[in-house]
Write a protein that binds this DNA or RNA. Structure first.
Lengths: 238, 238
DNA sequence: CGGCGTTCTTGATGCAGATCAAATAAAATG
DNA sequence: CATTTTATTTGATCTGCATCAAGAACGCCG
């Protein structure tokens, strides 16, 4: 079992997922959990799998047990923008939407514990604590989206790349100070570019610059060590 | 009374606001409405007024009765990004947050019907329909934020400005086809630049280009007429 | 281990939008 | 209405990132 689903604020054992996490199940009492758990199913998907296409009717909402999920938007001419990354133990899915307006893909291998969306919506009507939990998560996602809008709209390439590294370090195996000092990038250069509104060449050049600075180390393209966290924070323009 | 608060989907008369609108009050039954209405207060603010500063404890949530509210984020060096515009009859405020992480300002003169945030949070616990209403609004805001991330990250200046005009036309006095053909820009060139991640000079040049194209007309800098809606949509890259 | 497709890096060049600078238009003030 | 102030437009120039073009490193599979 991975460290990222063994988090500090563990509210309750989710029988459906058979794992402790801070997903939605923490909002439920034992009976509700049992009822929802009866409808749950486990799934594993390899990196790159499409989970929900644009226009699809989303049938499930899921606790992410491990891995990283990428939400993106497409323009008719092929331009792409990654609009959110979701990490274990986030909750994945958009209740109350009859069709998805984002493309949902597994960025890495992922394990999910899924519930039928309609069952979840029905249950929210009965269990106010569940709706409150989902509501708070939506508000947190909105806060994060706004933070990222600042990054997209007003930061330069160097600041964007540094901000991205900090974001990953905060979400993948975080340590005491809230940031990992060693991690694997869950995204290709191309995905990073689509997340930051840049090109792969610019991503590569900025990573090289940070490496030559001594701010980070990079091995085999994907493995990053943060050598100077304060410098990285300064580079991100906070 | 303004047309924008007389909308088609009018659920209920809100006694607190003394106005029909599709704000949160539509989720309440008569008793709840009365209870919340007793705690409400009306406010008017001139354009440019700061409603909530970053770090402030937000005391109120409000139905916007008229006008436009601007939410923005600041970097230490003064760079600014507008992260959302809210129009009547949207609901303004971030429940469950002890301090604001955005700067909330009146972009135009605004009239608000405000409720104490804590009263509203307490009431959400009692009235599931109210929490559901707020939850759905948060999800809609998240969808909009993601749309705008695509605009910020992947569109060029011409597309950004066209997208902005369409967004305003959809929200200010919308007509049958969902877009106004005549409206006043609720934002200065400087605010538009901070919304689009551009400079005022670029905004001005792109507006001039659209005017010379015959796509739009501009009088006295702020008043816009949409002369060719289809061309404007094409210019926005949808 | 070696060949091969894929991903990543590095270099050279071009251009969209920023920046700097000034003119003009509009709004505010008395 | 004249005067000042502020907002917007327009022009000239500069620059950061995109684009185009090779190479280098890596992962995969026989």
């Amino acid at each position: 079992m991975r460290q990222d689903i063994h988090n500090a604020d563990v509210p309750v054992l989710c029988r459906a997922c058979e794992a402790r996490h801070r997903g939605i199940c923490g909002a439920l009492d034992a009976n509700e959990l049992l009822r929802l758990g009866r409808r749950s199913s486990r799934h594993e998907h390899g990196a790159g799998t499409t989970l929900v296409a644009v226009g699809d009717r989303p049938e499930h909402c899921s606790n992410i047990l491990s891995g990283v999920v990428k939400l993106s938007k497409l323009l008719a001419d092929g331009r792409q923008q990654v609009v959110e990354l979701q990490f274990a133990p986030d909750f994945l899915g958009r209740p109350f939407a009859e069709q998805s307006d984002v493309l949902v893909e597994a960025a890495t291998d992922v394990r999910l514990c899924s519930f039928p969306r309609l069952a979840l919506e029905a249950m929210m009507a009965d269990a106010p604590a569940l709706e409150n939990r989902m509501h708070r998560q939506a508000l947190r996602q909105l806060d994060d989206a706004r933070d990222w809008m600042m990054t997209l709209g007003r930061k330069n390439a160097a600041e964007k790349v540094a901000s991205f590294l900090l974001m990953i370090a905060r979400h993948v195996r975080p340590q005491d100070d809230g940031y990992s000092s060693r991690f694997d990038l869950p995204l290709s250069r191309s995905d990073i570019a689509d997340f930051l509104g840049l090109t792969i060449e610019t991503i590569s050049r900025q990573l090289t610059r940070l490496r030559k600075d001594g701010t980070i180390g990079i091995e085999r393209a994907r493995h990053v060590t943060v050598q100077d966290l304060e410098a990285l924070k300064r580079a991100a323009a906070i």
